[in-house]
Design a protein around this nucleic acid. Structure first.
Lengths: 209, 209
DNA sequence: GTCTATATGGGGATAGAC
DNA sequence: GTCTATCCCCATATAGAC
């Protein structure tokens, strides 16, 4: 997210400026430590400013968290939508679904502290903050439902699976990788391939094949 | 867990006595509200005692949380092991795996506040508490790895799937149901059937069949 | 925009009476 | 076993100087 006005020096920590810089740091800390462990003091320290100064940019801690949560969904939504629309119109269903899975997993595991922070802390934030994030989430969910419905109508997916339930199962499974994914054991891309294999074909040895 | 010394009246809230009663209430509150939102004062109030009295039973909040986490895994572990060992020795691989999935999901969604609390708050508790829960978790994971390896050796599962990764995918997917499961939309048993169908056979429409 | 205070509240935890 | 009372710390948030 960030896009600071100018420099890109000192990547790791110090002197992140402005509202976006604070937001970037907050997202990273929330992803790393969860919601409850991250105080405004911690965010301020990581940003190289004092806690009170944060209130120049934000009205409350909830406002920061809400901004992080919304951006997190927007990033993964755009990633998934772009990956799908970039394909030729006549692409087969399996390839489309694989692209969507890959885009979701890349946003979550490779690209965005905002997306991973959202997945990690959504269940920890106050109800009011969760509610504020719901419309954004609904839009992303609708994108998936639309995709899955289309594939089912095209005959690519089994007819007897409930789209809503399938979406919950799939996104839930993908998001759960955040708890154990380790880039040293294989890339997010490779992992997305495995997930696609399992969801598309299952793990049972088949007598035919 | 509970097993109070005697009565079973007033199910919903008041006058839960003793260490086990406090633990039961803590587990329920952690499951419902997460770790950060549940103070000792809240637990005490729900138990019908005062906050200070909790320290007669426990040395610290961490001790309570650790006990809840351990019990949560023990319950689901026993549930899964019993379900599998109850089957005849020559039961086919698919049936065994379906039973294990069903047992895990039932413990998580139907039976135990401890198991659901564990899944919900494990990522929110202090590192030291997580570490204390690891041995118990490892034992349950080993049970799954052992089961999956056996099925793979018997030729029931595809040979090219990595057992550890498969276990992480499967347990992660099952645990994710906690975020959206709604008994009004279908039982945990029915849901376990759907999960087994997807993981075993996939969602792709097949030309053969 | 950032600083130095500081107000205010809630958290975990302890001491000692009953 | 439970109570009351209290300590101490850290959290969010505010006020006003620079």
């Amino acid at each position: 997210m960030a896009q600071n006005t100018a420099s890109k020096l000192n990547e790791t920590s110090r002197s992140a400026v402005g509202r976006d810089g604070v937001l970037d740091i907050a997202a990273r800390l929330f992803r790393e430590q969860g919601y409850g462990s991250v105080s405004l003091r911690k965010i301020a320290e990581a940003a190289g400013i004092k806690a009170g100064s944060i209130y120049y940019h934000f009205g409350s801690k909830d406002e920061i968290v809400a901004a992080v949560l919304d951006a997190g969904i927007q990033v993964v939504h755009a990633s998934m939508r772009d990956a799908v629309t970039a394909l030729p119109a006549d692409t087969d269903g399996e390839t489309v679904l694989r692209a969507a899975i890959r885009a979701h997993l890349r946003a979550l595991l490779d690209v965005s502290d905002y997306t991973s922070a959202n997945v990690r802390i959504f269940g920890q934030v106050p109800q009011s903050v969760r509610d504020a994030n719901l419309p954004t989430r609904r839009a992303y969910e609708a994108e998936w439902d639309s995709l899955l419905s289309r594939l089912q109508e095209d005959g690519a997916l089994k007819q007897d699976v409930d789209i809503r339930r399938l979406r919950l199962m799939l996104i839930g499974a993908l998001n759960a990788t955040l708890d154990w994914f380790d880039p040293d054991r294989g890339s997010a891309d490779a992992l997305s391939h495995t997930y696609a294999d399992v969801f598309l074909n299952g793990i049972l040895e088949r007598k035919d094949a």
